[in-house]
């Protein structure tokens, strides 16, 4: 085992294991693959397969068809809307924050402060986050009360309700924005000063620079990260559950109720519900990874 494997650089590695010959080196990663198989791949596959079976284990497409009943469709639709609103809103604000801190001509301490804070805030999710927003924008929350006493303005009279669609989207943005900042920061760093100078030397305005240089370089990261945020919000349970209980019918809450008590009265329909979620988060993450590979061409 002490011989060197003679692959120092990026050269394609000589295949240590030819087909049909067992390579002892693979033993070293066996625990990892076993773990991944039993605690990631097997459970997920079970649900995927179960989505295509009836109660007796026979193949059927009935569960997939049943996903299109109004209640389930509506749950998916509200989830998609909340995720889209919070990811697009989070992406826009996150981008401007990162850009302002990095290229906005601000003092140098702004950037590390923002990045540190983003690292913390992107992990401040779940039940405590719901508490924080209830204490702030709930019916007796700080901001609600202050607005009434200072300006005689009751946000709840305008139809706003924290325990509803926009309330949830606004709350989700608390972890979406920092995540956007963390991922966009290196990309904005990658915009070279020379490009801007070259653009203005050639007589281009700031608009021209963004139209022909900035956005073409950044858009894969922008769109990709927005999709990542989308998947991030789509799979979230705890914040929504603690905030709205089960009053807002989003798909994760429905799945939660299904796991707890088979509210759909069909185990296999529950598996199909999970399958639909994997499909949506898998698709948006897949496009994210693809776009990310594209963007690495320019941003080194």
């Amino acid at each position: 085992m002490s011989s060197t494997a003679s692959t120092q650089t990026a050269q394609p590695v000589a295949p240590a294991a030819r087909p049909g010959r067992f390579s002892w080196e693979l033993l070293g990663v066996l625990p990892f693959f076993l773990f991944a198989f039993f605690f990631l791949i097997l459970p997920t596959s079970f649900l995927i397969v179960g989505g295509f079976q009836d109660a007796d284990g026979r193949f059927t497409l009935a569960n997939i068809r049943d996903l299109f009943q109004p209640t389930i469709l509506k749950a998916y639709w509200i989830s998609i809307q909340v995720s889209a609103a919070s990811s697009i809103g989070g992406a826009i604000l996150g981008f401007f924050l990162a850009y302002a801190a990095i290229s906005g001509g601000l003092p140098r301490w702004v950037r590390p402060t923002l990045l540190t804070f983003s690292g913390v805030a992107s992990n401040f999710a779940g039940v405590p986050l719901a508490f924080a927003f209830l204490a702030t924008l709930g019916r007796t929350g700080l901001v609600t009360v202050l607005l009434v006493s200072l300006f005689d303005f009751n946000i709840y009279r305008t139809g706003f309700n924290l325990l509803s669609f926009w309330g949830l989207a606004l709350t989700y943005m608390y972890f979406q924005i920092p995540l956007m900042v963390l991922i966009m920061a290196p990309a904005i760093d990658g915009l070279k000063r020379e490009w801007r100078e070259a653009a203005s030397n050639l007589g281009g305005s700031a608009v021209d620079y963004w139209r022909y240089v900035g956005l073409p370089v950044l858009w894969p990261t922008l769109v990709g990260t927005t999709l990542l945020l989308f998947a991030n919000a789509f799979g979230a349970v705890a914040t929504a559950y603690a905030l709205t209980g089960s009053s807002l019918n989003i798909v994760t809450i429905l799945l939660f109720a299904q796991i707890r008590g088979d509210v759909l009265h069909n185990q296999n329909l529950g598996y199909a519900l999970a399958l639909g979620m994997i499909l949506i988060t898998g698709l948006s993450n897949g496009v994210y990874i693809w776009l990310r590979a594209r963007s690495e061409r320019w941003l080194r």
Binding site: V13, E25, P43, V237
Partner: peptide
């Protein structure tokens, strides 16, 4: 085993792709 790097990296990213609630649903079954 650098040739396995993409596979391992992909697997380590799976928990970000598959929602936690789905993973635990699978465990329960």
């Amino acid at each position: 085993l650098p040739r396995l790097r993409p596979v391992v990296e992909f697997i380590t990213l799976l928990p970000l792709v598959i929602p936690a609630i789905v993973i635990v649903f699978g465990y329960l079954r």
